[in-house]
Computed example of a mutant assay.
Amino acid sequence: MIPWEHLDTAAIPGETGSLRLMRRGSEFSIQLDRNELMNSRLSGSEEALARLSAERIAGVKTPRVLIGGYGMGFTLRAALSLLPGTAQVSVAEIVPAVLAWARGPMAELTGGSLDDPRVSIREADVAAVIRERPGVWDAILLDVDNGPDGLTRSANDRLYDAAGLGAARAALRPRGVLAVWSAHPDAAFSRRLAQAGFSVEEVGTRARGKRGARHVIWLARR
């Protein structure tokens, strides 16, 4: 078996933990210390995050979409394949090295998506971007943790508490959608979404086609 090769380590702003980029042949893995956050062979649910969101804003002529967390770019690439040429897509990624990896060793996965004229990149905390202006986004897609709690950064908890959900709802246009990816169900989070005033839909999906781990995507409509 081909051994894993450690390519790089990146600090997480405001945290003591670090991200590690690993490669085994053509396979990539991004790990939080020893915990795998994402793998290049498992993109199905990240692509579903984009697809399900795009379906719900299909009638918008000039959609504005915010993607929180670049990761390996699967959600961005899928969104660009589904959204119209008039779309404006902003990606908020707080770890600069993740974007450097996308343009460097993982460039084949990136597929030029970062250079798409519809895309703007923010090296910023997505929670801060959400709070900048009200009524801006048709869709906000969050895939920054393994679920609705601050795994990657403890500060990410503010994305999922009552105040954070209220800020996300205020940042959406009428009928806009907040989509949240998770590796596991969370009944308490579903209740918080409803309490924040969202119409909530919970969709199960697979990590890899019809196989792989079962993941969850919440689609919360304003």
Score class of each variant (00 low, 15 high):
residue 204 G to T: 12
residue 67 I to C: 10
residue 113 S to L: 01
residue 5 E to K: 14
residue 17 G to T: 14
residue 89 V to Q: 09
residue 132 E to V: 03
residue 63 P to H: 11
residue 137 W to G: 03
residue 220 A to Y: 07
residue 127 A to D: 03
residue 81 S to T: 12
residue 55 E to A: 13
residue 133 R to M: 02
residue 103 R to Y: 09
residue 62 T to R: 13
residue 42 L to A: 13
residue 53 S to Q: 04
residue 178 L to I: 02
residue 79 A to T: 05
residue 208 R to D: 13
residue 55 E to F: 01
residue 218 W to A: 13
residue 52 L to K: 08
residue 143 D to S: 13
residue 170 A to F: 01
residue 180 V to C: 10
residue 45 S to P: 02
residue 85 G to K: 10
residue 35 N to W: 08
residue 122 R to P: 00
residue 212 G to R: 09
residue 57 I to D: 01
residue 35 N to F: 14
residue 144 V to E: 04
residue 54 A to S: 14
residue 21 L to T: 00
residue 122 R to G: 04
residue 61 K to V: 06
residue 93 E to A: 12
residue 25 G to Q: 06
residue 62 T to Y: 00
residue 114 L to I: 09
residue 51 R to N: 02
residue 128 A to W: 04
residue 181 W to P: 06
residue 84 P to M: 02
residue 221 R to T: 15
residue 186 D to Q: 11
residue 148 P to H: 11
residue 64 R to M: 10
residue 215 H to E: 04
residue 192 R to K: 13
residue 150 G to I: 10
residue 33 D to H: 11
residue 193 L to Q: 09
residue 184 H to D: 08
residue 90 S to Y: 00
residue 69 G to M: 10
residue 96 P to Y: 11
residue 204 G to N: 10
residue 17 G to P: 00
residue 130 I to F: 04
residue 26 S to A: 14
residue 183 A to V: 01
residue 46 E to K: 02
residue 91 V to E: 07
residue 205 T to D: 02
residue 104 G to M: 13
residue 177 V to C: 06
residue 7 L to H: 14
residue 125 D to H: 11
residue 178 L to F: 08
residue 44 G to R: 10
residue 71 G to N: 05
residue 124 A to C: 11
residue 152 T to C: 14
residue 189 F to Y: 15
residue 200 V to D: 06
residue 63 P to R: 09
residue 215 H to V: 00
residue 107 A to R: 15
residue 114 L to H: 09
residue 61 K to Y: 01
residue 161 D to I: 05
residue 143 D to K: 11
residue 134 P to Q: 13
residue 102 A to I: 03
residue 193 L to E: 06
residue 168 A to S: 15
residue 50 A to E: 00
residue 197 G to S: 11
residue 168 A to I: 02
residue 69 G to V: 06
residue 100 A to Y: 03
residue 166 G to E: 12
residue 106 M to G: 01
residue 209 G to N: 12
residue 159 L to K: 13
residue 221 R to W: 05
residue 54 A to P: 05
residue 151 L to I: 13
residue 14 G to T: 07
residue 210 K to F: 11
residue 172 L to T: 10
residue 62 T to P: 00
residue 114 L to K: 10
residue 132 E to Q: 15
residue 44 G to P: 07
residue 1 M to S: 12
residue 168 A to N: 04
residue 103 R to C: 06
residue 69 G to D: 01
residue 36 E to P: 15
residue 141 L to P: 03
residue 127 A to V: 02
residue 87 A to G: 09
residue 142 L to P: 06
residue 94 I to R: 11
residue 74 F to V: 01
residue 118 R to M: 06
residue 92 A to D: 03
residue 44 G to I: 00
residue 173 R to Q: 14
residue 1 M to G: 13
residue 119 V to M: 08
residue 30 I to R: 02
residue 95 V to E: 06
residue 184 H to I: 00
residue 177 V to Y: 03
residue 27 E to W: 06
residue 175 R to Y: 08
residue 117 P to C: 01
residue 15 E to W: 05
residue 148 P to G: 11
residue 188 A to G: 14
residue 71 G to K: 08
residue 212 G to V: 01
residue 114 L to P: 09
residue 190 S to G: 15
residue 83 L to P: 07
residue 222 R to W: 06
residue 182 S to T: 02
residue 197 G to A: 12
residue 191 R to D: 09
residue 116 D to P: 08
residue 196 A to M: 07
residue 81 S to E: 15
residue 201 E to L: 12
residue 68 G to E: 04
residue 109 L to S: 10
residue 137 W to Q: 04
residue 78 A to S: 15
residue 189 F to I: 02
residue 54 A to Y: 08
residue 143 D to A: 11
residue 157 D to V: 01
